[in-house]
């Protein structure tokens, strides 16, 4: 399996420099997150005499010599950033995982079977949508307490609505299509139709939604941390560092710039990879000969009679 799939995947990635860059950036960020435990000690050590020390990378007047500078408590920003990436990625992945699983399954079931279950779920969705996110988050955190897993749950249990509504709408459209009717005519069971015929059609939009939601989740986690409902200090998070930098923003640009750039890089590369994956899994887009055809025109001629695949 891997033998066949990996080269195909890598060749597809190699066709677009943006996709290569996105993969590299994300790989770098994941490696950084994995290395984060090494930085725990400097990330937590406070030294008020080194408060707001500029990055040694750009400034000769540094006392502490921290590569990316220090924050208002004199903690090493670079080390905190590594830890924060780890926390943010974990929360984002957990939250998106929960949201996607719950939302997609409910969307599939409600869209396909409709009836009372659909009504029930959609009324719950309406109820949740009528409450502002922050109010809901306060209520849930008050009930189950703050902390990394709890924050991920709060985000997941509000984020599934996006998936459920999107998937339900798609399924409502797809279940009318003749190939679904054909599947029934063949004698397929409902579950087979739902998971073998309908579910594969929505992988594209679900993948894109996962990537978009992943960015939103990281930002939402920052919002919660800012309000004191997120992951409690001293554990650094990207949002936590950003909101803590508010008071010193004009004196110390680096505390805003580096976490902000990191956040942007994560969200951007995840979105680019999401777009790429959608195309990769769509059999109608020939991702190997599709985008950059002019570079290898001879390859297309070899295969006789390429029905429908036009070689522009």
């Amino acid at each position: 399996m891997g033998k066949i799939i990996m080269p195909r995947y890598l060749r597809s990635v190699a066709r677009d420099p943006r996709v290569i860059a996105a993969h590299l950036v994300l790989a770098l960020i994941v490696v950084a997150a994995l290395l984060a435990p090494l930085a725990t000690e400097p990330a937590l050590r406070q030294q008020l005499s080194d408060s707001l020390d500029p990055p040694s990378l750009f400034s000769a007047t540094t006392t502490r010599g921290a590569l990316l500078g220090t924050d208002s408590l004199g903690r090493d920003l670079g080390a905190r950033l590594l830890l924060a990436i780890r926390v943010s990625l974990t929360v984002g992945a957990l939250a998106v995982g929960v949201a996607c699983l719950v939302g997609t399954v409910l969307g599939l079931l409600t869209g396909y079977f409709m009836g009372w279950f659909d009504n029930l779920v959609m009324r719950i969705v309406d109820a949740l949508l009528s409450l502002p996110f922050v109010v809901l988050a306060i209520a849930i955190v008050a009930a189950i307490g703050p902390g990394l897993v709890n924050v991920a749950m709060v985000l997941g249990l509000t984020g599934w609505i996006t998936f459920a509504k999107l998937v339900r709408g798609e399924v409502l459209r797809l279940r009318q299509l003749p190939f679904v009717e054909a599947a029934r005519g063949i004698g397929c069971s409902h579950l087979r139709i739902l998971f073998l015929h309908i579910a594969p059609q929505i992988t594209g939009i679900v993948l894109v939604t996962i990537t978009l939601t992943f960015g939103q989740m990281i930002i939402a986690e920052a919002t919660l941390s800012f309000l004191g409902l997120g992951i409690p200090p001293p554990t650094p998070t990207l949002g936590g560092i950003l909101s803590g930098a508010q008071d010193t923003f004009f004196a110390a640009w680096w505390i805003v710039a580096f976490p902000g750039i990191t956040l942007m890089l994560i969200v951007l590369s995840v979105n680019i990879i999401g777009d790429f994956l959608r195309d990769y899994f769509d059999p109608q887009i020939n991702h190997l000969s599709g985008r950059k055809k002019r570079k290898r025109p001879a390859k297309n001629v070899e295969v006789p009679n390429r029905h429908g695949i036009e070689t522009r």
């Binding site: 003749p178 190939f179 009717e181 054909a182 015929h197 059609q201």
Partner: peptide, 10 residues
């Protein structure tokens, strides 16, 4: 089926 374009799972 009538429409061979939509009666096959893409």
């Amino acid at each position: 089926f009538q429409d061979p374009y939509s009666s096959l799972n893409p």
